[in-house]
Every structure is written in C-alpha cells, then in structure tokens.
Design a protein around this nucleic acid. Structure first.
Lengths: 219, 219
DNA sequence: ATGTAGCCTGTCTAGTTAGTCAAGAACTTA
DNA sequence: TAAGTTCTTGACTAACTAGACAGGCTACAT
C-alpha cells in the first residue's frame, strides 16, 4: 500500500536528498504558475501557492526564499518552452512551412501550458517590471531575425507585402495565445464546454489557414 | 488666478454638489482604470488609486464604498465603449466594409483606451470572476449574431470558408487588443519608442489588410 | 553508530491594507 | 441666516501577509 503513488511522496521508500529538492521545486513551480496565472504577482499569496502545492508555507520560502524570486523562476521556466517553439520559425526556408510549424507549435503550447502564457501575459500587461531585460535583449534579437526572414520572403515575392513584419508577428502571437490567456472566454462562447482535443486540432488548423491566407499563401 | 484650471478643482468659484459628485466619480474611475490595468484587482490598493486620483483614500470609499464595487464600475464603464464598437460589425452588409470598420474601431479603442482593455484582459485571464454573467449573456448573444453574419457570407461565397467563425472573431479581437494589452512589448520592439499616431495608423491599415486577406478578400 | 548537512514546519512579527468613523467644511434651501 | 444635506479627511482598527527563525527530523558519509 502506498508504493505506487505517482507524483506524490511515498512514505515507504526514502527519497534521496537530491531528488527531494528537485521534486519539491517542480511541485512548487507548477503550483505557483497556476496561482500567479490567476491572481498575478501581487494578488497571489505564498499561502495560496503552498496550499496548491500541498506543502506548508514555510517550504515555499525554504526553497525559493522570496515570492518575487519564485515568480522570476516561474517566468524563466516558461521562457525555456517558448524559445523552443520560437526556434521552429527559423528552421524552415519556405514561408508556408515556417508559418505552419510555428503557429502549430504556439497553439500546442497554449493548449499544454496555458498557465505559463497567462503569467507572461500578466507580466507584460503590468509593464514587464521583472522581464524588461529579457524582452529588450533575448526577445528583441529573436524578433529582429524573424522580421528579416519575413522581409526576405516579401522581397522574393514568396508572400505579399505585409508592410511592417512586426504586425504579422503580433497577429500570430496574439491569436495563438488567445486560446491560452482567454481560455475561459473561449469556453463560455463554446457553450460553456472546454474545447475537446479534436476540436482544438480543428481550431489550430483554422488559425494556420487564416494566417497563411493573410500573407497571400494558399493553405 | 486659478479660474481657468481645467480638469481640476477651482478654489474660487464654488461647484454645485451635483457636478462635484459627477466630476469626482469620473476622476476616481479614470484613476482606478489605470491602477487596475497595471496591478489587477487584488494587486491594486485603494491608496494607490487615491494617489493617482490625487484625493484622500477616504474619498474613494465615500464615492464607491468598496474596492470591488469600484472595480465593477470600471469594467461596466469600459463595456459601454466596447459595445459601441461592436455595433459597427452588424451595420454593414458587405464583409469588406464590416471587417474594415470593425477592426478599425477596435484598433482605435486600443489606442484611445488601452487601460480599459487591460483591465478586461486581466479579468478574463483570472477566469472572469466578476463578469461571468456579462460574458455568457450579453457577449454570447452578440457573438452569436456575428457568427451567423460570417456564416452567411461564407454561404454566399463572399468570403472563403473559414471553418468555425469564432476562430476569425478571436483573431480579430486578439490582434487588435494586442496593441493595448501588450503596448509595453510593442514599444520595446519598436526600439523603445511608443508608436506615433501616424505609425499607429499604418499598423491599423496593415492589420485590416491582413485580416481581409485571411478571409480571401482583396484589400 | 554517530556527526553533520540539508530538509521540514509551527510559531511569531513587522508591515500593509480595506474599510470605519466622527468631526468639520461647503453647498443648498427656505 | 439658519438648518439640513452632502462632501472631505485624518485617525483608527481588524484582518491579512511575507518572511524569519528555532528546533526537530532525515539522509548520508565516515
């Protein structure tokens, strides 16, 4: 009894120090992501996070010292996933494939990790007080390379002239992240039912097609 | 001296009780919109709002009683503007004009009232605890009529088959509101400079063109 | 087995915050 | 001008919160 508890502490076999820290940090990060997504940095309390993680509040402070530090760790951990998706944009020569894969990857992220997207959304809406440097360095650099990809496609007449390439990029971000950030609204307007996996795959394809057409490509 | 103070209290001529209440409520609503946009409901303090409004904290409570009530009033006041823009969608028969005007109106709102958009974004991200009823009644009804407009355009072959009409609607919302909600990010990626009015007009046109093309219309 | 380093947690505290209240100021009306 | 109403505001309070900390516990090396 109690041997096959998955994702929980086993009371039978002792855990190594290393795995204890690793596991607890992950549990806390995951719980914090959820709570921060719902209430923002200031609106979240360490008690809420502790309850979500099913740990005493002191543990949160033991592992992450301060709420702000935990918040930054959550943002960083999300960024890792985002950057992976971002890479797909520059691994394809042809705009059709690049857009298809990038939009698909962003939609998948919205589905799999909606809380992460929400935490970032909150952070940006609040004026990115903690992530300004990331935005103006890492993100800016990636966006610049993206913009020049798009511009080269325009020059080669592979897509129509979209004007400022940022506009296209914003449309892609905004639309894909909408399914994470505003999932509650999407649910209500879907007659109160959360999108099923197959419904979501449909929407993903529709979004890809809309965006492909928006740059003059036939899906 | 002090007679021509615009938008501020004159110390010379006494104000009528009626205008005092009206003016102060507006000042507080405006200040609250700004503060709530930045910090969310829980993250904002009545002291911050009071400071923004340049009034003692007690005045906030005198006029709006509780923070939650003030928050609801802010949301309601934004909704009025949103619904006005929403109306434009159904006043045009032709999809090209309907989309052009609706997207234009939403972009203008993002420019003129970015804080309002942010407050709503925060509210939806948090699961719309205060505005659930508005979403599932007023908004749902409007969206349904929009969706049938779009579907009829598809049936009449005026636009391409976009699949679920909601997807198109979400793309329009997400993209236009991006310029309000993520204005800070937009600024950073615009080399740290806020978009000028004429730059914004350019982007507005680009967004309109992207969306028109996405449904198979030639801008 | 025994020491030590790291894990765990209940309790405490200093600081913050929403909302109250009472007393006074300003406008209104008769 | 005098009474009545509404506006204004500093001071206060009860509730909450981030974080500190001491003392106990557990793994692990020697």
């Amino acid at each position: 009894m109690g041997n096959i508890i998955i994702g929980s502490k086993s009371k039978d076999s002792p855990r190594s120090k290393e795995s204890i820290r690793e596991e607890n940090e992950l549990i806390i990060l995951f719980a914090a992501e959820k709570v921060f997504a719902k209430h923002g940095l200031k609106g979240s309390t360490t008690k809420q996070i502790a309850d979500m993680a099913e740990l005493p509040k002191s543990n949160i402070h033991y592992y992450f010292h301060t709420k702000l530090n935990l918040y930054r760790c959550v943002l960083e951990s999300i960024l890792v996933d985002w950057m992976k998706a971002a890479d797909t944009f520059n691994t394809f020569e042809e705009p059709r494939e690049a857009i298809r894969y990038y939009v698909g990857a962003k939609m998948d992220l919205s589905r799999v990790r909606p809380f992460g997207s929400k935490v970032w959304a909150n952070e940006i809406i609040s004026g990115a007080p903690e992530m300004e440097i990331v935005l103006s360095s890492r993100l800016k650099k990636w966006v610049d390379s993206c913009v020049s990809s798009i511009n080269s496609w325009v020059k080669l007449k592979k897509i129509v002239d979209v004007g400022d390439a940022h506009t296209l990029l914003y449309m892609i971000w905004a639309t894909t992240q909408h399914y994470a950030d505003f999932d509650y609204q999407v649910m209500i307007l879907n007659n109160g039912k959360r999108l099923t996996d197959s419904e979501f795959e449909e929407k993903k394809q529709e979004v890809i097609d809309l965006i492909l057409r928006s740059v003059g490509l036939n899906p």
